[in-house]
Design a protein around this nucleic acid. Structure first.
Length: 598
DNA sequence: AGCACGCCGACT
DNA sequence: GTCGGCGTGCTC
């Protein structure tokens, strides 16, 4: 007998290994084995059994690690779906699933529910599930108060002793959900976890709920760069499971499925939500610090004198602060990245936004040898200072990504969009989004959704008044708020996406190339670009864009280039790109990563 | 990815 | 002579 084995390596497999007669009864698909690959001992996963192999001189399996399969049949199938969609090897996909499905727990399940099947791989039991259109549901909760929905959906299932799987965008959210559900359910009534929990075995689970569906943290940052929503949709299709998505500002991708009738929509009237107001900056000549309009200042004044809280959110994007030598104008840059250093007041140091690089303020200018630096551009700290002068007796705090915690004792809180991490815990009488325009004007189509979603979530924090400052009051993102009609946003965003054949009306695969040597990276990109072009024929409608350096071309000493491929079908595009990659010689010093719908 | 193998230049 | 850098190709 022969076992097919895959590895957590970018290798197309599977590899055939002889099963020694002593291990014959203990080997099955879905369990891990130790084998020699080349000269090195490695852990692989058995994907199948064969009578014969087309390879000669097979090596033997050294030992078996698991007693029972760690993955069920559905998870094994998901592995091949993942590898074809995200362009990783089957082994990388299956080991990703393995790490996400909390091995110990699922082996307990495999033992308890599959005892009569010996070590055979478990298949989904025939559970009577909904067979109508209600299998996939989207609950839109503009207020962001998703807990009542979780409770009402879960309650009947828990009463029938059925189990639910809950996905939260990150560990903060998962803890918050657990805390909120304590009042209603016991810990054994449901499973919960962050994005990798989407890979868990669905045996014994009646429903999966994905909380805050549009949260960007649902995208994995390492290969395979999967999108949790997409994985869940793949599983729903194959495994016939019920799924509930919950969001305050649903992604355009999921709204498209709603429009196509594939997802059932439930809207919750925006009870208690404040009506957003756009502040047209074109009406004002002078802004404090270039960012605070008289309208916002008077709203702040009202709340300060009334003793209520205000939150100002500075979106930061695009407005880069720069530090220059006051003698010669030389820009202080990070040694490892292609980006300017920023001053961090609390630590009294300059730091790089992309890596851990930092330096003392008395560092001398390499040109004129003078340690005299001046920072330009705006951060939240100068903003805080300016406000403190305006409101000397108020408590004005700052919050950004690096802040250790959010303090509650304030009159005015000046923060970045990192505040969103605590969006359901924070509330204030007045919430102001200071700068949204930079986000509206970007070429990236997703940035309009980011703007929409940022504003949508901030609105949920506001108890009395929500202001958006803008110079583009007629932009569709702004209009969707000032006219309080989210459909204005979705209709127009989908129209643009359809016109440009962007996600979800077409797909993009970004090929990221990076190397410590700029030349090598450029060579590799050029070669791959040529291979892609020579492979493409007129009957495959794929657009291949020439390699472009990333916005921050050098990050952590690595030079970065991107090749963008546009097309209709992701699986076709991935197969096409992989073919082109096989035709170009692999360089050990150039790392290539595929990013589907970045 | 990680490793061996093989080809060149530099050096005790 | 031989040590070691790097490019190439393979792993069942």
């Amino acid at each position: 007998m022969i076992a097919q084995v895959v590895f957590d390596l970018p290798l197309e497999g599977p590899f055939d290994y002889l099963i020694p007669s002593s291990l014959k009864s203990s080997i099955a698909p879905g369990l891990r084995v130790n084998v020699l690959l080349g000269t090195k001992k490695r852990t692989g996963l058995v994907t199948g059994l064969l009578e014969q192999s087309s390879f000669e001189n097979l090596k033997s399996i050294k030992s078996v690690i698991d007693e029972k399969p760690l993955l069920d049949q559905a998870q094994m199938d998901l592995g091949s779906d993942l590898s074809r969609y995200y362009g990783c090897s089957l082994g990388e996909a299956l080991f990703t699933i393995l790490r996400g499905s909390s091995v110990i727990e699922s082996s307990v399940i495999a033992r308890s529910e599959a005892t009569k099947q010996s070590n055979k791989i478990a298949t989904l039991p025939a559970v009577a599930r909904n067979d109508n259109n209600d299998k996939l549901t989207l609950h839109v909760v503009p207020s962001g108060d998703y807990v009542p929905i979780l409770v009402s959906v879960m309650k009947p299932l828990v009463q029938r002793k059925q189990r639910v799987l809950i996905l939260g965008p990150d560990q903060f959210a998962v803890q918050a959900i657990q805390e909120a559900l304590k009042k209603y359910f016991s810990k054994n009534d449901y499973f919960i976890g962050a994005r990798s929990m989407v890979f868990r075995s669905l045996m014994g689970i009646a429903l999966v709920m994905m909380v805050d569906e549009d949260n960007p943290s649902y995208k994995q940052e390492q290969t395979p760069l999967y999108e949790t929503r997409q994985v869940l949709l793949m599983r729903a299709k194959r495994e016939n499971i019920d799924v509930v998505f919950i969001s305050a500002t649903p992604s355009v991708e999921i709204m498209d499925l709603v429009h196509k009738g594939k997802i059932h929509l439930k809207n919750y009237p925006a009870r208690g939500l404040v009506k957003p107001q756009a502040v047209d900056l074109n009406n004002y000549k002078i802004l404090l610090k270039g960012l605070l309009s008289p309208a916002v200042l008077s709203a702040l004044e009202r709340n300060v004198s009334g003793g209520t809280k205000s939150i100002l959110v500075f979106n930061h994007r695009g407005s880069y602060a720069v530090t220059r030598c006051s003698e010669c104008g030389f820009v202080l840059k990070c040694g490892r990245c292609d980006s300017p250093m920023l001053y961090w007041r609390a630590k009294k140091q300059y730091f790089c936004r992309h890596c851990s690089f930092h330096c003392e303020p008395d560092i001398v200018c390499p040109h004129c040898q003078v340690p005299s630096w001046k920072s330009f551009g705006l951060g939240i700290e100068p903003l805080q200072k300016a406000l403190q002068e305006k409101f000397p007796t108020s408590r004005i705090l700052t919050f950004e990504r690096r802040s250790p915690q959010i303090l509650k004792d304030y009159d005015i809180l000046v923060g970045t969009s990192a505040l969103l991490r605590f969006k359901y815990q924070i509330q204030a009488a007045l919430v102001v989004l200071l700068d949204i325009d930079e986000e509206l004007n970007r070429l990236d189509i997703r940035s309009c959704f980011r703007a929409f979603s940022l504003a949508g979530h901030l609105r949920g924090m506001a108890q009395g008044q929500f202001l958006i400052q803008t110079r583009h009051p007629n932009h569709y993102v702004i209009k969707s708020f000032s006219e309080d009609d989210a459909d204005i946003f979705y209709r127009e965003d989908m129209r643009i996406r359809r016109e440009l054949a962007l996600c979800p009306f077409g797909h993009q695969v970004m090929i990221h190339l990076r190397s410590l040597q700029q030349k090598l990276g450029q060579q590799a990109a050029q070669e791959l670009y040529q291979a892609l072009n020579s492979l493409s024929s007129p009957n495959v409608s794929m657009k291949i864009h020439a390699p472009v350096a990333e916005a921050v071309a050098k990050k952590r000493d690595q030079y970065r280039l991107n090749i963008l491929v546009q097309g209709e079908d992701v699986i076709d595009m991935i197969a096409f790109i992989k073919k082109a990659m096989r035709q170009t010689k692999r360089r050990s010093k150039v790392i290539v990563v595929l990013n589907v719908d970045p």
